[in-house]
Design a protein around this nucleic acid. Structure first.
Lengths: 253, 253
DNA sequence: CGAACTTTTGACAAGCATCAACACGTGTGG
DNA sequence: CCACACGTGTTGATGCTTGTCAAAAGTTCG
């Protein structure tokens, strides 16, 4: 099942095919979906909390995040999204979007008319299953984040976040070796883990001092995966990745 | 659209019908679903993290909760469920259940064969939509919990939890007036909000001292709904209840 | 080159955790 | 029927983790 690399929907199709078995017919049907490309600057809103109509799109390149705000303006980041992820499908049946989506980097999105997606899904039960499963996994990740923020300390939370991002980048073929993208400011890391940017700074310094990671700009090098995994109390089960549970750990064998 | 009160699936059907419009044919089809009743004692596991096959059931009576544990044994409660709620559907397409479900009180569940549910859904698009929407709302609630635990202080978290439980009990016709069930120990309240049982105790005492609530055993009386709502930074939008945004507030007019 | 953002550092305060002990009610078995 | 164990709620003392405020240093980008 070869998928054309240059196609803008290829990352999404590849992600679906990784977790669910799709035949050639299904892959072709997905790649034939009509879609419109949009470019976004860092920080811009792809979707806003309270918006009435939720669209359906997939990330072609770049990173994005979902967030909600309290009445007093504090922000919680709910999830990070990268190439191939589906966005907005969770909102389609709800009256109003209950969270915002913002670009973490420069981002290209492919917007798919919901009607077209529904038709393709109706014609191919395997696609329906694959889309369902993606949503289920999103739910599973959200639950793990709740556990992370509710029951782990600052060091564990940040290490856990890093582990997740690393594994998901591996799965999306976004990296080689121990170098990963970490395109978040320390304030955003704090918003994702429920701590202050100041405390994020000190905690990340701790991980560096211990020789577990090195941070350079928007990049992070994971020098000691086993220790990072231990520091983050991380187990990859919740990602339901299907493949190897810990690619990087395998690489160190 | 009258629904037989004595039917064990009635709470679920009524909940579906509240958010999505269902015709008489759909209601009948749902009520005709085969199901098996099970009784559970307080504390027993309806489902266990790691279980391979996820079942599909609805709560006929009693309260239950979903939870996950860290590697060191700390527990985070992910959601509370009451009469009419659907359980296990989130897991059906995943390889292993990523969280546990336990009885908060004595509980009666109705187990529906997944195949039968799928057939009914296939025959009635409105039912498919209604089930989807329930899952979407569950996701929305999970995101609000993440915000709650990540970005609110102890008092806000507990007040917020109380507001949610109150509104959902109202929606499920489980209460009259300002008295609600709160069948959680302070340790469980702590596990739901990411704080210690000791600190829960002190915080709940604060709410009582301020004349906002009264607690007697497993019951709670909300004496000052506006203040509780304010204390919890609570807005009911995320519940996507469809009906009045704040029934109790309406009652105080 | 300067403005705006981000990281870093320090001093200090506060929220919450931890540990320990006691009170209280409930059910259970002797 | 009482004694007892057990779970739950309550209280106090203490300290650590994290938040807050403020300022300086580094970075990015027009």
């Amino acid at each position: 099942m070869k998928i054309d690399d240059t196609h803008m929907l290829a990352p999404m199709v590849r992600k679906l095919a990784r977790r669910s078995s799709l035949g050639a017919a299904e892959v072709d049907a997905l790649l034939a979906l009509p879609c419109r490309l949009l470019h976004w600057d860092r920080g811009s809103y792809l979707m806003r909390e309270g918006d009435p109509s939720a669209q359906c799109m997939t990330l072609v390149s770049g990173f994005a995040y979902c967030s909600k705000a309290t009445g007093t303006g504090a922000r919680q980041i709910l999830s990070i999204h990268l190439r191939g992820d589906l966005l907005g499908a969770q909102q389609r049946l709800l009256d109003v979007a209950d969270h915002s989506v913002q670009a973490l980097t420069r981002v290209v999105t492919a917007h798919i008319p919901p009607q077209a997606l529904l038709e393709v899904a109706a014609a191919h039960p395997a696609i329906t299953r694959a889309l369902w499963r993606e949503l289920m996994v999103d739910g599973s990740v959200a639950r793990e984040w709740l556990l992370n923020v509710g029951r782990r300390n600052a060091r564990q939370r940040i290490a856990h976040l890093l582990c997740e991002l690393a594994l998901r980048q591996e799965a999306a073929d976004l990296c080689a070796g121990p170098d990963y993208q970490w395109p978040m400011t320390q304030e955003q890391i704090g918003d994702a883990t429920g701590i202050t940017s100041v405390h994020v700074n000190r905690t990340v310094q701790g991980l560096r001092r211990d020789g577990i990671i090195r941070v350079t700009g928007q990049q992070v090098t994971i020098d000691d995966w086993p220790q990072l995994q231990a520091a983050g109390d991380f187990s990859s089960v919740y990602l339901h990745a299907g493949g190897a549970p810990a690619p990087v750990a395998d690489a160190t064998k």
